[in-house]
């Protein structure tokens, strides 16, 4: 027994406590709250604002943030807070579609490659390597050329790009489970291949995949917003966070709020999802 193991064994005998850092838990709750609010914005924006995100009111142009207009108004007099709330739908559904697509494609390719091995594995493995060696954002841009501009197209592009990441993770998880002693023990217990896949391999790959899903959700929000920022995603007048920042950039010299609030919204939501995923990852490792 090593010294470290001895130290760990001793501290382990103490009854486990939920958490030694109440502040850490508070962070998790806060992050969950931010994500929940953003999701509600996307599902039911009219609960949070009564204004119309597309209503042009020239008389109210460039109003700085106030009690009436929390985030101020833009060059057409539209309420920026309303546009940010409605923008959640484009950004979050986009990220959701992207991650769902990535998980679907990645899980199929990864499981097939990891379980069957041999030639199947080498072909899929090489293909994954190639996709991963093209800088991801450029790959997504290339797909956008093919699909055209729009939030959904951007989401598909981002999803296809990150499916390689999922495929690689799931493949390695399946491989790890497949070569593990407990799968070997299941074989000697007489379990069939199908039963082993269903009872051991897939459930044990799931937790790692879940952690990656939350990470990739944050990345997808950033990428879709970045594509929109570049003019390659959402098209005006649709409210979308990246596009809102891009719209505001012409006025940053004097009307900073136009970029500041949408920008901070993206940061808050992504920070919150990353924090949640970090928390999930930590819970996973005992």
């Amino acid at each position: 027994m090593t010294l470290i193991a001895e130290a760990e064994a001793e501290t382990r005998t103490a009854p486990p406590r939920r958490s030694r850092r109440p502040l850490g838990d508070a962070g998790v709750y806060l992050a969950a709250l931010v994500v929940a609010v953003a999701l509600l914005w996307a599902v039911a924006p009219n609960l949070f604002t009564s204004a119309d995100p597309l209503a042009v009111q020239p008389a109210l142009r460039f109003r700085p943030p106030s009690a009436d207009h929390w985030f101020g108004t833009d060059q057409l007099g539209r309420d920026l807070y309303t546009r940010v709330v409605y923008g959640a739908r484009a950004s979050l559904t986009g990220a959701g579609v992207a991650v769902a697509l990535a998980v679907l494609v990645g899980a199929i390719l990864g499981t097939v490659a990891g379980w069957f091995g041999g030639v199947t594995d080498s072909v899929i493995g090489r293909a994954i390597d190639v996709v991963l060696s093209i800088p991801g954002f450029l790959f997504a841009i290339t797909i956008v050329v093919l699909l055209g501009f729009g939030v959904l197209q951007a989401a598909v592009a981002v999803g296809l790009t990150s499916s390689a990441t999922f495929a690689r993770l799931i493949r390695s998880e399946v491989l790890k489970a497949r070569s593990s002693n407990y799968v070997e023990a299941a074989i000697t217990s007489g379990a069939s291949t199908f039963a082993i896949l269903r009872r051991h391999v897939l459930p044990n790959s799931f937790t790692a995949t879940l952690a990656l899903i939350t990470v990739q959700f944050g990345i997808a929000i950033i990428w879709i917003a970045s594509l929109s920022f570049l003019g390659l995603g959402a098209q005006p007048p649709q409210p979308e966070w990246g596009l809102l920042v891009s719209d505001g950039r012409n006025y940053i010299a004097s009307r900073g709020w136009l970029t500041l609030w949408p920008g901070l919204t993206v940061v808050a939501v992504v920070l919150a999802t990353n924090h949640l995923s970090h928390h999930l990852g930590r819970r996973r490792t005992p």
Binding site: S180, Y182, T188, G190
Partner: peptide, 18 residues
């Protein structure tokens, strides 16, 4: 396998962690 079973050196790793 009904008739032939095996016990490993390291039992813990031969149990599914779940």
């Amino acid at each position: 396998r009904r008739d032939v079973q095996i016990v490993h050196q390291n039992p813990y790793s031969s149990f599914d962690p779940r």
